Computed example of a mutant assay.
Amino acid sequence: MKNARNNDLSDRRIAAAEAKTALLNAYRAAAAAAEPARSARQAERMAVAAAREERRLERERMKRDEAERRAAEAAERQAAADAAARAETDAREAAERNRIARVLEDEAARKAERDRRYANRKARRA
Rank of each mutant, 00 (worst) to 15 (best):
E93F: 11
A34P: 06
T89C: 05
E105F: 14
K2D: 03
I14T: 09
N7A: 00
Q78N: 13
V103S: 08
K111P: 00
A84N: 01
A119C: 13
A29I: 09
R12Y: 04
Q78D: 10
A33H: 06
A17D: 10
K111Q: 02
A108E: 03
D90N: 14
E60R: 05
L9W: 14
T21L: 13
A4H: 01
L57R: 12
A84P: 00
N120F: 14
R38E: 13
E107P: 01
E60D: 11
R64T: 08
A15E: 06
K122I: 09
R99I: 07
A67I: 09
E96V: 10
V103L: 01
I100C: 04
Q42N: 15
T21G: 09
K20T: 02
A112K: 08
D115N: 15
R55H: 09
E96F: 05
K63G: 10
I14Y: 03
A43D: 09
D90P: 05
R70S: 01
Q78W: 03
E73L: 14
E68Q: 15
V48D: 11
A75E: 04
A85M: 04
A17F: 13
N25L: 14
A91D: 04
E93L: 03
R38A: 15
T21Y: 07
L57C: 11
N3L: 00
A126C: 09
A119F: 10
Q78A: 15
D65L: 05
K122A: 09
A80P: 03
K20V: 02
A109P: 11
A119V: 15
D90C: 09
R70D: 02
A31Q: 12
R110Q: 13
D65Q: 10
A33R: 15
A79G: 12
D11C: 02
R28A: 09
D106Y: 08
N98V: 14
A81P: 06
A15Y: 01
V48T: 12
A101V: 04
E96S: 08
R116W: 10
A67D: 14
E107Q: 00
V103Q: 11
L57F: 07
L104G: 08
R52E: 12
A112E: 13
R121P: 02
A29P: 03
R5N: 00
Y118V: 07
A126I: 02
A85N: 06
R28E: 01
R125P: 04
R64C: 02
E58G: 04
S39T: 10
I100W: 13
A87H: 02
I100D: 02
L57Y: 06
E93P: 01
I100S: 11
A31C: 14
R97I: 11
D8S: 00
N98T: 11
T89G: 05
R12F: 04
A81C: 05
R12S: 07
R64K: 15
E88H: 07
R13F: 10
A4V: 00
R77L: 02
S39R: 14
K2T: 12
A30P: 00
R45N: 13
D115L: 14
L9T: 06
A49S: 03
R102T: 10
R92W: 11
A94M: 14
